[in-house]
């Protein structure tokens, strides 16, 4: 009788252990999946839709609703251009690079917005991230892409002010009051770009 009770007790303990192991494993799987999901949304944008779904990650997103960090950079002709000189204008601050394929696909759309909403005061600034690249090369690339808006020479310190800009493209839509209304990481669709532009007009 005692032996039977002992065996039954052991069975209950093992079954309890089985439930615990099952729950623990399920919990660990959930955590692992969450970690993988976090990594995907943090480091990769697998499609334009995903890229623009929700807010971008990193420090850049924390700038939404805040005053856009000021900067003074040099354009491709050597002329100084500062964000402050466009006070009262809606401004699109777009970080790009000559080596970034998605950037070069969205830039013609910014040019289109530039032409379409010029009368409403829209300003587009393309901040090159080609550190160490000859200015002539940046100019050549911009010409090939077909943009006529201001392209500004690289300065890593400005990217740091905008959250580090870990990957490209990253875009900040600044309203007439100098506040960042929308942030976007990765190349979105043309319609999404236009919708974002309309938010700051």
């Amino acid at each position: 009788m005692v032996r039977r009770i002992a065996v039954l007790a052991a069975v209950f303990v093992v079954i309890g252990g089985l439930f615990w192991a099952g729950w623990y494993n399920h919990h660990q799987r959930q955590l692992a999946m969450q970690r993988v999901q976090d990594r995907i949304t943090t480091l990769t944008k697998n499609s334009p839709e995903e890229a623009n779904s929700g807010a971008p990650d990193g420090m850049g997103d924390t700038l939404k609703g805040k005053v856009a960090p000021g900067f003074t950079l040099v354009d491709l002709n050597g002329k100084k251009v500062s964000l402050a000189q466009f006070k009262g204008h809606p401004v699109v601050v777009n970080f790009w690079a000559t080596w970034c394929g998605p950037c070069k696909l969205e830039m013609p759309w910014f040019e289109e917005m530039n032409q379409k909403y010029k009368d409403k005061g829209l300003v587009i600034l393309g901040l090159s991230q080609d550190t160490g690249t000859d200015v002539a090369e940046i100019a050549k690339s911009a010409k090939k892409i077909g943009v006529t808006y201001e392209i500004l020479q690289p300065d890593d310190n400005i990217a740091k002010l905008y959250g580090g800009v870990d990957y490209l493209p990253e875009t900040f839509y600044v309203d007439g009051k100098g506040m960042i209304a929308v942030t976007s990481a990765g190349a979105p669709t043309k319609d999404e770009i236009e919708a974002n532009v309309k938010k700051i007009l």
Partner: peptide, 9 residues
């Protein structure tokens, strides 16, 4: 790069 964004060299 992935489908929508690029990382620095």
């Amino acid at each position: 790069c992935d489908n929508a964004a690029c990382f620095p060299p």
